[in-house]
Amino acid sequence: MTLRYAGLVTRGAARILDVALLALLVAGTSWMVQQILGIDPGRCGPVREWWNVRARLCGFMPYAIILEGVLIPPIYRILFLTTAGRTPGMAVMGLRLLRADGRAVGLRQVLKRMAIFYVTLGFGSVLIPLTTRRRALHDIGAGTVVVYDWGDHAADVRRALERYR
């Protein structure tokens, strides 16, 4: 593992990949729910009987997408960061989230980091090029760092790096 702290561009690219994947996930989930339940949100009938769950769900679908958009991203981040120390976007870009002392992150750090990120709307990332360990505000608050981890591909990346230097 290359213990070099990752910068703004790599981390930004990882986040963009994650957002794209999350958008697919949210859209895919709502599409799947509609397909499984046979709901068409454009043609919802009136709810006359209280036991008509499908009609009630149909009316709820526009809100369900918003709810998915709120719920799925945090679940996605918590799940991947606590189990693998990286989200799929971070894996593609060769990044890993660690505690400031180099140990693997736990649920507490991930929750704290995410909370600060949402509260600051991600603007804490402007600190990345300004701090010595390239830490954003949510990293400083949660006691984490993001490092390059190219795994088995390290030699390939170094070879590619020689072309750009």
Partner: peptide
């Protein structure tokens, strides 16, 4: 795929350093 991924990572790595240098210069 491996080659493309390595290339993207290397470009981002170089860009990280460039952004840092630019910020330092501006400040």
């Amino acid at each position: 795929v491996r080659e493309i991924q390595a290339d993207v990572r290397a470009r981002a790595y170089v860009a990280d350093d460039a952004v840092d240098a630019w910020v330092r210069r501006v400040l």
